[in-house]
């Protein structure tokens, strides 16, 4: 455990990057995923086709490959986003948690777009789990598709969607490790670096980082349980 104790601040920073990436990718995934789900259940055939095609293509491609395609594709479209918040806080030196380099942003976008396809499927199955009578009643009082979806079906689907969305978020947090492959200095990257520098302690370093991930997973599933309990019909 010496290697982890000696590099404690780097380990914490690396997990901080993992958390940042997961939160930002979660926002992208939830927004895009909800829009895709709305497209997939919409009365517009073109919309349904677009939603279905997106989910089929993205779900069947490895995340690492999507990250590589985004990383090589977006610069071709003249998109090279970078964000540095250090100056906002008046910091001279670059702090890893405040500077978002291109690799981080590309990997986050890829992770968000990849997870969006799973969010879409979770939301869609939640919508399908609502009894037919609910939507029928809404339509019979004259609500439009948008009103039926937003005011009647989605509020009820929310309850059914929490457990699968929680597993999606857990899978996404674990998947953020793949960003190590495109040079983002998050937790898995840090573990690789530490094991290279301290080859003799590889087992204890691995267990330390594994525990770190287990804590993150436990936090997300606790949050999911909390939301599930709060949304439950008593």
């Amino acid at each position: 455990m010496d290697a982890i104790r000696d590099n404690w601040s780097e380990v914490l920073t690396a997990f901080g990057v993992t958390i940042e990436m997961s939160v930002l990718a979660a926002i992208i995934a939830l927004v895009v995923g909800f829009l895709l789900a709305a497209l997939r259940v919409s009365p517009i055939p073109v919309g349904r086709a677009i939603g279905t095609a997106y989910v089929q293509l993205v779900r069947n491609t490895p995340l690492l490959l999507i990250m590589l395609i985004v990383a090589f594709g977006l610069p071709e479209l003249d998109l090279r986003p970078e964000l540095n918040l250090n100056s906002w806080f008046g910091l001279e030196t670059r702090h890893a948690l405040l500077s978002f380099d291109v690799f981080f942003i590309f990997a986050t976008i890829a992770l968000g777009l990849y997870t969006a396809s799973f969010v879409c499927e979770a939301v869609r199955s939640g919508i399908n789990s609502i009894p037919l009578g609910q939507a029928e009643a809404a339509r019979s009082v004259g609500m439009t598709f948008g009103q039926t979806l937003l005011q009647v079906v989605l509020p009820q689907a929310y309850r059914a969607v929490i457990p699968p969305l929680t597993s999606t978020m857990i899978a996404m947090t674990k998947n953020s490790s793949v960003a190590a492959g495109v040079g983002v200095t998050e937790a898995t990257f840090a573990m690789r670096k530490l094991t290279n520098d301290h080859a003799d302690q590889i087992v204890s370093i691995f267990i330390g980082f594994a525990i770190g991930y287990m804590v993150l997973v436990a936090l997300i599933s606790a949050a999911g349980n909390f939301l599930e309990r709060r949304a439950a019909v008593s």
Binding site: K174, N175, M191, V203, F206, Y213, M214
Partner: peptide
């Protein structure tokens, strides 16, 4: 344990080990 740990983390560990 094995459900919570990212696959890549395990692969890198086994590769080094």
């Amino acid at each position: 344990f094995f459900r919570a740990v990212p696959v890549l983390l395990m692969m890198i560990f086994f590769f080094g080990f």
